[in-house]
Design a protein around this nucleic acid. Structure first.
Lengths: 159, 159
DNA sequence: GAATATGTACTCGGATACACATTGTCCGAGTCGATGCGG
DNA sequence: CCGCATCGACTCGGACAATGTGTATCCGAGTACATATTC
């Protein structure tokens, strides 16, 4: 899986602690973890295309969450970065096998493909069950200093 | 995910229908689906290293299942080809964040990492629940002609 | 003093290189079976 | 006829290229703010 997923999730989480309506430039989100700014920008663009964040140009511009953290799941973020395709893609080998029917879509009927799809579905279900708001709550309960630390660092980067 | 996984699963499944003790060369397993022989051979080597199949050199040599299909899961095959690493690998971004503790292993304590691990675990659990024997039984029930067709094609390839 | 035109700095966005992993190919080491020879 | 040495063909195994995807970077288009100018 692409490394950008991790960056995107942590960056979105950081955005949840900032006052609503405030945009943060990619450069600051990147500096927060010492990441390459231009490349993180690319990932944020993907999040913007997926409707997870909104982007604003010019001074005082940047990125902010497009909707409430309760409505953003980890799956949303992963799909935005990695694409919607399943990890296992059936190439329909059975089309070349004995007793093959050219009219059949083996992505549906192949039992191997079905088993892989079930696993993929279980994975997606687990990710879809975690919202950004839920994650935020967990962090705040376990590490109460995090929200304050985060805001402080962002203001410090303002220099 | 690597395409070799699909090839490996189908090839292993084909092996379950052949008489026990009979080795099949990689060239025939590849010809069965019209795959590049040398590259499939590479994947079969990985299965051999993982103890899923055994390899025999020389005439009448080839590959055969190393153990009973009841003891071979889809997860075993996927791990043999793809490696044991999880799809999401935590790079411990939090080490660069505010309030970071250098002695902490954030692959364990980071809640993002934990959520991703749970999803990965659900995926693995689903794959581990499917044995080669179970898959074989499903195919035989739904497509009773498959075992015969498979053996016939392999003997035809003997020419 | 207020409104407006202008300049400037800042931000995203896409186009452009680089690196690595996956995919694909090839040839050599080893092994088994067949064959021919000798007993 | 039987046993054995030799030969040959077949198979895996790892080393060697080609390709595609992910990673990283740079520069241009657009925007909002601040400033200077004019009424």
């Amino acid at each position: 899986m692409s490394e950008g997923v991790e960056w995107a999730v942590h960056s979105c989480l950081n955005l949840t602690w900032l006052p609503s309506g405030q945009a943060v430039p990619a450069a600051k989100l990147a500096a927060f973890y010492g990441l390459p700014a231009a490349y993180l920008n690319k990932q944020l663009q993907a999040l913007a295309r997926a409707g997870i964040v909104t982007s604003t140009s010019g001074p005082r511009g940047g990125f902010q969450l497009a909707r409430s953290p309760e409505t953003i799941t980890l799956l949303d973020i992963v799909v935005a970065i990695e694409g919607a395709d399943a990890a296992f893609r059936c190439e329909q080998l059975l089309k070349e096998g004995p007793g093959a029917d050219p009219t059949v879509d083996y992505r549906q009927s192949c039992l191997v493909s079905q088993a892989m799809s079930r696993a993929d579905l279980a994975w997606r279900k687990e990710l879809a069950g975690q919202t950004l708001a839920g994650l935020k709550a967990q962090v705040e309960q376990r590490y109460p200093a995090t929200p304050g630390n985060t805001v402080n660092r962002f203001t410090a980067l303002r220099a």
